[in-house]
Write a protein that binds this DNA or RNA. Structure first.
Length: 666
RNA sequence: GCCGACUUGGCGCAAUUGGUAGCGCACCGCACUUGUAAUGCGGGGGUUAGGGGUUCAAGUCCCCUAGUCGGCUCCA
């Protein structure tokens, strides 16, 4: 046996030639190799000079392999039960995998259970995943019954493969055979780049089919819809359990659920899809959010403006919305048209539109007078309610609504001031988000997609805008993630992504640079040399939409709002009626200081009152009985059940006021 | 918009093979007057999302509309 020189996990090592990954790594948790940067099956045999690393099942690559192999088992199970099912693609995704199938009838929950049974059988049989290189021609013959796979072969090496990249790469084509370990017989096969687990047993019973749904073939709504099955798979039972618990936790925090439970808002069917009404408790939270935002904007030198909800079509023609964005707008309201008895138009009508954006109005305010460089930067701020015709299938609670209020600002600046103003805006935005309790951010830079006609304006301007945004974003020190093609039609944007308490990220603020609207509206200012120049606009929404931000905060806090936001901040619960007056005085004292406090004088018994207000997530429950009254004190009970007895009244009041003023959580 | 599931009193749910709507919480009344998550008793409230059809009979079956949920596409 000759030996070869390789490096194994960074260490120069001499190994026998022809040795495969199974021999190199005997640990059961190693599922694949990384050879010179490329993922390989454990059956791969390294050659002289290779740099080899082990891939642990718990590593990101290892998890992908586990999940990808699980997807294969799912596909095999589907075809075992229904040989007519045609295969789409089946990649790993965050926390799991999916596989798309073309089947006559969609899968039912019962089907999923039957499929899990079949998958268990396949997994227990310990099939090996065996890689086999093939040619395009041979694969076409072998997969003649799999039209979607044939299509992928045709796309091989092109940019349009998209999610099919798990099936075909740019190199040689490979098929994975699932081989029965006892008979050596190939029981199933799939076009796939791999790598895969050595055998199905490694999947164990640590997977679960989650749901089925339709998905367009190759993600294009013009294509046929296939039936997709989603699953999750993990290396260990504990990880699967904790994943399922996390889903449960997320469900408990769902703002739609908490909104109903805490009586914050609702979506009356009578009003229409995606249109919320805020109830008193939600209303006070929202008002508090808005009031604080107003205060900060005032301090930061913004002007407050207001604009109507509807306007004549011409404004949106000038802005470009009707040309570029009509399908996202509510259909027009036809006004003032009159016809004679023959149906002939006697008086020409007008089309009015609900506004999808506030910017054109702010532009008109800018234009209402001649502007000087001395006026700039001009910062206009408005809680502007906009209406967008979201497709029926995408409406989702407060986070995707058809009517919502943007905390919208438009900054008119000179070219020279762009950078400084952007820096200030970004800092302002992040500071304010922190005050609302979000602390973990990264930035996304959304740029135009070359050649896509939806983006208006000339390339040089786009480049300047994009470069400036990138510079400012980079200087912020936050992580910057590119988002090609995600720009607004009139300009690139930075968006602030915030992580919530359970690690989910939400797009919050956006800052967009716009050279285009000033052009379309022919905006000008007089420079200090007397020449007329064109200002640049910065569009900036901080919460994105107040409704959406409200929803995000509700989920972030799981409904347990910090005192400054809590709809009811203090409830006084007397131990018995006898103490109503005593505790009532304390509550009055708090109310006089602006605290949202009330006294529970209902006929409920004491423990029931505690239960009620705990369920309502009131931050401070103040309790008073004989002992407290004698000591001129009250007792605190907090939402987590902890308590603090005999706190002198003056101290208690001060403590509550301070918690509210400091915007801290309790 | 597309695919699928779902819609029963304010909320959460139940109702054998189609046989004519129940429960808990909440609400109202009465009694109890209580030291840290549910006091007891009584009461009111639904033409089962809306409309149409099949049937002797529809919450249960079929069709249309609206809404909700999960995905897909979309999110300027």
């Amino acid at each position: 046996m000759s030996s070869i020189q390789v490096t194994v996990d960074g260490q120069p090592t001499s190994i026998e030639s022809g040795v495969d990954g199974f021999k190199l790594f005997t640990s059961k948790t190693v599922v694949a190799l990384r050879v010179n940067g490329e993922l390989r099956d454990l059956a791969h045999r390294p050659v002289e000079g290779d740099a080899i690393e082990s891939v642990e099942i718990g590593s990101p690559d290892g998890l992908n392999i586990l999940r990808h192999s699980s997807a294969h088992v799912l596909a095999q199970a589907v075809q075992n039960i229904n040989p007519e099912a045609k295969l789409g693609i089946g990649p790993p995704i965050t926390d799991g995998f999916y596989y798309d199938f073309d089947v006559e009838t969609p899968f039912t929950p019962e089907d999923l259970r039957a499929l899990e049974k079949e998958m268990d059988r396949i997994i227990r049989s310990g099939q090996r995943f065996v890689r086999r290189a093939t040619s395009d021609e041979a694969a076409r013959v072998e997969l003649a019954n799999e039209p979607y796979k044939l299509e992928l072969i045709g796309l091989k090496g092109t940019d349009s493969v998209g999610d099919g990249a798990a099936e075909v790469g740019s190199g040689e084509l490979t098929i994975y055979d699932n081989v029965n370990p006892h008979t050596g017989e190939t029981v199933w096969k799939d076009l796939c780049r791999g790598p895969h687990l050595p055998n199905t047993r490694m999947i164990g019973n640590v997977y679960s089919l989650m749901r089925s749904a339709a998905a367009y073939w190759r993600g294009n709504e013009k294509n046929k819809q296939l039936q997709r099955i989603y699953g999750t798979a993990w290396p260990t039972k504990e990880e699967l359990r904790s994943h399922l618990e996390q889903l449960e936790e997320a469900a408990k925090r769902d703002h739609r659920r908490l909104g109903a439970e805490l009586d914050l808002f609702s979506f009356p069917e009578e009003v229409g899809s995606g249109l919320a009404v805020f109830h008193p408790k939600g209303g006070i939270i929202r008002k508090t959010m808005e009031d604080y935002s107003r205060q900060r904007h005032e301090e930061a030198g913004y002007d407050f403006v207001y604009s109507p909800h509807v306007t004549k079509s011409h404004l949106f023609e000038t802005s470009g919305h009707l040309q570029w964005y009509a399908e996202g707008m509510y259909p027009p309201l036809q006004m003032d048209e009159e016809r004679d008895e023959n149906g002939e138009i006697r008086k020409q009508g007008q089309d009015y539109y609900l506004k999808p954006m506030n910017c054109p109005f702010h532009v008109l305010i800018y234009k209402s007078q001649g502007r000087s460089y001395r006026d700039l930067p001009l910062r206009m701020f408005e809680f502007g309610t906009v209406y967008r015709y979201e497709k029926s299938g995408v409406v989702h609670g407060l986070t995707r609504a058809r009517g919502f209020t943007q905390d919208d600002a438009h900054l008119f600046v000179t070219q020279e001031d762009i950078e400084v103003e952007l820096q200030n805006v970004l800092k302002f935005v992040l500071d304010l988000l922190r005050d609302y309790g979000l602390n973990d951010f990264y930035l996304e830079l959304s740029t135009k997609e070359e050649g896509n006609p939806k983006f208006v304006g000339d390339d040089a301007i786009w480049k300047l805008a994009t470069d400036t945004l990138e510079k400012v974003a980079t200087e912020s020190g936050l992580k910057l993630v590119p988002d090609p093609g995600g720009a607004a039609f009139y300009g690139p944007k930075i968006s602030v992504q915030a992580k919530d308490a359970i690690g989910r990220t939400w797009q919050m603020s956006t800052i967009q640079l716009d050279f285009n609207l000033p052009e379309r509206f022919d905006l000008e200012y007089t420079a200090n040399d007397g020449t007329r120049r064109r200002p640049v606009m910065i569009h900036r929404a901080l919460f994105g939409s107040i409704e959406r931000f409200f929803g995000v905060l509700t989920e972030h806090y799981a409904g347990i709002f910090p005192p400054w936001l809590a709809p009811v901040q203090v409830v006084g619960i007397p131990v018995a009626d006898e103490f109503n007056d005593y505790l009532g005085e304390v509550i009055e004292k708090l109310r006089a200081s602006g605290v949202r406090a009330s006294l529970d004088v209902s006929y409920d018994r004491f423990p029931k009152k505690i239960r009620n207000h705990t369920k309502d997530k009131v931050p401070f429950m103040l309790i008073a009985g004989g002992e407290d009254r004698d000591a001129n004190a009250v007792s605190f009970r907090f939402r987590d059940g902890s308590q603090e007895n005999a706190v002198p009244v003056a101290q208690a009041v001060e403590r509550i006021l301070k918690a509210i003023a400091d915007k801290v959580q309790v």
